[in-house]
């Protein structure tokens, strides 16, 4: 089974931890991975819920949810950024 490394930052890190390894299906997109995590229920469902502002990156580049995943990728979910 292929896996990706999922990382969380800011408020998402506080509720879900810093990172975890997650199994993916071939051809799965970033958005589908988010839905898979939501389907676990609990803290994941609350933190990643549809309607909450969650941004994502794929291999350390900002990405949208249509981006396809490949095995071994680094995925990140986080709130809108607020630097500067």
């Amino acid at each position: 089974m292929a896996t990706v490394n999922v990382r969380y930052f800011a408020a998402l890190r506080e509720s879900l931890g810093g990172s975890e390894t997650v199994d993916i299906e071939p051809g799965q997109t970033l958005g589908q991975l988010r839905d898979t995590l939501i389907a676990r229920g609990g803290a994941h469902a609350a933190a990643l819920a549809r309607g909450k502002a969650v941004r994502c990156a794929l291999n350390q580049v900002m990405a949208d949810e249509s981006a396809p995943l490949i095995a071994g990728a680094e995925v990140a979910f986080f709130p809108p950024v607020t630097g500067g």
Binding site: F9, A10, A11, A53, A57, M62, A76, F78, P79, P80, V81, T82, G83, G84
Partner: peptide
């Protein structure tokens, strides 16, 4: 560019507690 595209997050501490800053 940096304000909206660089991955930084601010958390403020106030007398009412700590809170993440909204974009």
């Amino acid at each position: 560019y940096l304000k909206t595209q660089a991955p930084f997050w601010k958390k403020e501490t106030t007398p009412e507690g700590a809170r993440w800053v909204d974009a």
